[in-house]
Simulated scan of single mutants.
Amino acid sequence: MTDAATRQDADLPWDTNAQPTGNPLQKLDPLANLKTKLYRVNGVPTPFYGIGELAKILGRRPDTIRGWEERGWLPKPTAVFPGRDPRNADSATHGRRRLYTRAHLLGLLKIAQEEDVLANHSRISQSRFPQKARKLFKDLADRERAEAQRKKQSV
């Protein structure tokens, strides 16, 4: 391998000499291994992530995420759909499904990294995570509203 090739490889976000393990996109896309659920929003199929997927990227359990919501440390998701109880096929509905967009998950992951709440299960109550998460959710909701209004005006 030439020096030029070595220098080029050094600029890549992954180790070119490493043996492939897992999903090679994981380094480029932290959400690559997560499951999405498609829901129709205004007639358009839209991918969402469940609370379990949010919990995975934050290194927590879904009940911890629910607790953060109850304490006000994490805003409740803007998309909530009726759920079904997987343990009871006869159940018409059971609870509700908390759903997050890709932008929510990437934003929360970035905030968690900035506030160091991923390492050693640091306490989010002692960080700026709650304030930054509320701002993220507000900004995303404002952007959605502005986009919907723009679409409505163009029709």
Rank of each mutant, 00 (worst) to 15 (best):
D85L: 10
R143P: 00
T2R: 06
D139T: 12
S127N: 01
T101K: 07
N17Y: 12
R128I: 01
S91A: 14
H121K: 13
P45T: 02
H104M: 02
L74C: 05
R71W: 11
L54G: 00
D11W: 08
K151D: 01
A133K: 01
L106M: 15
E114G: 04
A79Y: 10
D85I: 05
T36Y: 06
A146H: 06
V155W: 14
P75C: 11
R96K: 08
A5R: 11
Q26K: 15
Q19Y: 05
G67P: 01
T64K: 11
W14Q: 05
P77M: 08
P45Y: 00
E70N: 14
N23Q: 02
L38H: 12
L106G: 04
K56E: 11
E114T: 10
P130V: 12
I65E: 00
F81V: 09
R97C: 12
G95W: 00
A4R: 07
L136K: 00
L140Q: 05
P45I: 03
P62A: 04
S122R: 14
F48P: 00
L118G: 03
R71P: 01
R84G: 02
K152I: 08
P75S: 07
K35Q: 13
R128K: 14
H104V: 02
R134Y: 02
P13Y: 15
L108Y: 14
K35C: 01
L105Q: 04
T78R: 14
F137Y: 02
E69R: 12
P75H: 09
D15E: 03
W14L: 14
G95M: 00
G22V: 09
R96N: 04
G50L: 10
V155N: 15
P82M: 03
V41K: 14
A32P: 03
